[in-house]
Computed example of a mutant assay.
Amino acid sequence: MDYNKKLSVIVPVYNTEKYLNRCLDSVLAAIPEHSEILIINDGSPDQSEVIALSYCEKYPEIIRYFHKGNGGLSDAKNYGLSHATGEYIIFLDSDDYIEPDMYREILGEMQQTGSQLGICDINCEYEVEGTNLISCCYNPNRGSTFFQILDTPLMAASWNKIIHRSLFEGLDYPTGLNNEDVAVTPIILGRANHCVIVKKPMYKYVQRPGSIQNSTFNNKRFVIIETTNIAIERAADFPLHIQEQIKGSLYIHQILGLVLYPIRQQSFLKRYSMIKEYMKKVDGYFIDFFQNRYVMDNGMTDTYKNRIFKRLSTRLLKKKLYLVTSIFFGLVNLAEQINSQMVKKGHK
């Protein structure tokens, strides 16, 4: 198939007028020759359209602008894919930004090795705290490059991966569901002939109040169960060992991860109630969850403290001791608060 452009950067936009200039400036500095930027305005009610149109007027040979009715992030991504003309695809959240060498460096590595997918590390920027945390895009404790990328908490992210267009064939993002990348990225990884890892934190993932990931936590986030199930069903055509690795990663980092981190941070009664409700849904969807070897071995390569936390939590959940689990999480939260206060005092 012939492609008109080398790379299509798809930028879904909704209520990000505060961040859009920075985002577009960063991608313009990074865009390779003969590439395009697609701005998909998903019915944003703020001034994002005014900002986007000003960039279109200034860079008409690079930027294409589309305005559509609000359909959510999945719908905006599907819309962008249907209009993209690049041989390679990458997404960019409009409240994030990138390093100037990100796209060219990843594409260069991909073309040198004949790879269909390239990935880089992530720099998580916490807007309120003013802190940064580097998230590696690979797990060195796993054997193949595929499994190294798969077995990470941010594996599903679509914005730190350049993907050959052919890998999207027959795939779409499930409309109306958040955590949409979970249903697509594992399948793309499984399809790729080879993946390259650029071990530099070139994607700036901005953690801001009010974003989807940082809004008030509620049971709408349980949608991760549905997107995980879609991914597992879509992986059915892969060899069994690939299916097992995909399922293990999703069970650990998506399904179990929601309990061990955001649910754990809720107040005691809310936490207890949500654990019961969530685990009932997990049991209904994934009858093999606690028989999965990756779930039961979770934390084996972590530090001693994290390993004990993960393994004890898993065993309490397996036995349906949800009240005990909630009490245990409260103790862990308290210990983390005390440790954080001690660290702050030590820096004064």
Rank of each mutant, 00 (worst) to 15 (best):
Tyr97His: 12
Ser8Asp: 06
Gln116Val: 01
His34Arg: 14
Ser340Ile: 05
Ala231Thr: 01
Asp95Phe: 12
Ile308Thr: 10
Leu321Asp: 06
Ile149Met: 05
Glu169Gly: 05
Cys195Glu: 06
Gln213Asp: 03
Phe146Tyr: 12
Pro100Glu: 11
Asn218Arg: 07
Tyr203Met: 15
Tyr79Asn: 12
Ile188Thr: 03
Leu177Thr: 02
Ser166Gln: 10
Ser35Tyr: 07
Phe217Asp: 00
Ile10Asn: 08
Ser158Gln: 12
Asp288Trp: 07
Leu38Ser: 06
Asp302Leu: 09
Leu331Asp: 00
Gly43Val: 08
Val50Leu: 14
Thr85Tyr: 00
Ser249Trp: 03
Glu233Met: 09
Lys68Glu: 10
Lys319Leu: 15
Lys281Val: 01
Ser326Met: 01
Ile162Met: 03
Tyr97Ser: 10
Thr216Phe: 07
Asn132Tyr: 06
Glu109Asn: 07
Gly86Trp: 07
Ile163Lys: 11
Asp46Phe: 01
Tyr205Trp: 15
Lys281His: 12
Ser340Asn: 11
Ala192Pro: 11
Gln337His: 08
Ile263Cys: 05
Asp121Arg: 04
Val196Glu: 11
His347Ala: 10
Asn178Tyr: 08
Met274Asp: 14
Asp96Lys: 04
Pro239Asp: 14
Leu150Phe: 11
Tyr79Ala: 14
Gly43Cys: 09
Ile252Ala: 13
Met279Lys: 13
Met155Ser: 10
Thr113His: 13
Asp172Trp: 01
Asp75Leu: 04
Asp2Pro: 11
